[in-house]
């Protein structure tokens, strides 16, 4: 049986807009994935614990507030502390190009900036899952 991909969509940081996160959540659902949407202003601790309880294959974070250089790597650090090495972590939102190499070095698998078609995110997830059926 085909494995259903579970994606935790989270908005870390203090900004109060989740339109982008909702758009991607719907696109992932329409691609047959199960999206656990955790809403606004999530701390890295909340995101990681939720991903573990939900047994998510993917954590997709979106951020507009500019705190990505701190919050994204923090999520990866917490995953590592808890011995979780098989969750794909991706990010999106308003992220300057200059910051992307640093985020990737920290373990963010891919960064999707505004304007990226949702299909690119869907394909990326399908092709880069760390856990196979």
């Amino acid at each position: 049986m085909e494995r259903t991909i579970r994606v935790l969509v989270a908005k870390p940081g203090l900004d109060g807009h989740d339109r982008g996160a909702k758009v991607i959540a719907r696109a992932l659902r329409d691609a047959g994935m199960e999206v656990i949407y955790t809403g606004l202003r999530q701390t890295p601790e909340q995101i990681v614990n939720a991903a573990i309880q939900e047994d998510a294959d993917v954590i997709a974070m979106s951020i507009l507030s500019g705190a990505h250089n701190h919050l994204f790597p923090r999520v990866l650090e917490l995953l590592k502390d808890k011995g979780v090495d098989d969750v794909l972590v991706i990010g999106g939102g308003v992220i300057p190009d200059d910051d992307i190499p640093g985020l990737k070095a920290a373990g963010i698998a891919e960064v999707f900036t505004p304007g990226t078609p949702t299909s690119a995110t869907i394909d990326f997830i399908r092709n880069n899952l760390k856990r196979k059926a």
Partner: peptide
């Protein structure tokens, strides 16, 4: 599509850092 948006957790996620609480959608 067989996909789903599981939104119940939004209202409860503050408990996810409490080790004595487990939430599953």
């Amino acid at each position: 599509t067989g996909g789903a948006i599981l939104g119940d957790r939004i209202r409860m996620n503050r408990h996810s850092t409490d080790e004595s609480v487990f939430i599953r959608s």
